[in-house]
Amino acid sequence: MTDRLPRIPRSDALDNRERILEAARALFATEGLNVPLREVARRAGVGPATLYRHFPTKEILATEAFADQMRACHAVVDDGLADPDPWHGFCSVIEKICELHSRDRGFTAAFVSAFPKAVDFTADRDYALKAIAELAGRAKDTGKLRPDFVLDDLILMLMANNGIQAASAAAQVAASRRFAALAIQAFRAVPEPSPLPPVARLALVMPGLTR
């Protein structure tokens, strides 16, 4: 009696899976989560049936596509918690989280959305939010973070950050850095004006506003 060897996925199936993930990351980053899965399949060069065989739902696809971003998000909040100065750690988290999210619109949408079928992603998001809540509590104890700050303010900030439309990817990141600096000033318990990062060229300029 011989043991059955584990089934190893064929190389073409693995290639299809990677192409689908690559296409999903690119489309989610630029278009957000509203991209139809058929468009993801078209970009990946596979049929819809092949996509659904690997990823039965958009939630599962998003979970896999954003795995690297979630790991980076964990590293950011863990570094913030490890900072001996809670306020400095909190500010660092705000700056890095804004930049991380500015590089991928889809990640922000997934982060603030409820995906009941993406259990792993939900757990990761909850971990990040609980860690930030703990860090915010420590920062409040120093007297530097305003006492009425709540996690909803962080979600509001991420949603606003996600709305930035810049002329290029580099300008998008630059605009996000400036926005993060403005948000940090708003979160201070006592106003303490400091120089802002350079202004970035945005995709839309409202008439009458000066740069």
Rank of each mutant, 00 (worst) to 15 (best):
E95P: 08
R146M: 07
A128I: 11
L204C: 08
S92R: 13
A200Q: 04
Q185V: 02
T122F: 00
R125D: 03
D152E: 12
G137M: 08
I155D: 06
A114M: 05
M157I: 09
L135T: 00
S194Y: 15
Q172L: 06
A189D: 09
S92H: 10
R178Y: 12
A118M: 03
F187A: 00
D120S: 11
S92L: 10
H101K: 09
Q185D: 11
L151S: 04
P116A: 02
R177F: 10
R211S: 12
A170P: 01
P191Q: 05
L209V: 11
A186K: 12
R178P: 04
G137T: 15
D141K: 14
G137H: 06
S102P: 12
I184P: 14
F149H: 03
L145R: 02
T142L: 05
A133K: 07
V150I: 13
L182W: 09
F90A: 05
F149T: 10
T122W: 00
K96Q: 15
A160P: 00
D141G: 09
G106K: 02
A136L: 03
I184M: 04
E134W: 04
L145Y: 07
I94Y: 05
A109C: 08
A169K: 10
Q185P: 01
A118V: 14
P193T: 05
L196W: 13
H88S: 11
L129D: 03
A131Q: 08
A166L: 06
R105C: 09
I184V: 13
K117E: 14
V150D: 07
I132S: 00
G89A: 07
R177N: 04
C98E: 09
T122N: 05
E192S: 13
A131R: 08
F149D: 00
V205E: 13
T142N: 04
V93S: 02
L182C: 12
A110L: 06
I184C: 04
F187L: 04
F111P: 04
F115M: 12
A166V: 02
A170D: 14
P198R: 06
H101G: 09
Y127D: 02
R211T: 07
A171Y: 01
M159D: 07
R178D: 11
A109Q: 11
W87E: 01
T122G: 07
T142Q: 03
G137S: 10
N162V: 09
E134D: 10
A123G: 09
A189L: 01
R178F: 13
F121V: 11
D120W: 14
K96N: 13
A189I: 03
A167W: 07
T108S: 06
H101L: 09
E95R: 15
R188F: 02
D124W: 01
A183S: 13
L145K: 01
K130Y: 05
R138Y: 01
A189H: 07
R125V: 05
S176W: 07
D104F: 05
F187M: 05
L196D: 11
L129H: 03
Y127R: 11
D152W: 08
A183M: 15
T210G: 06
D153N: 12
I94L: 14
S194L: 14
P197E: 10
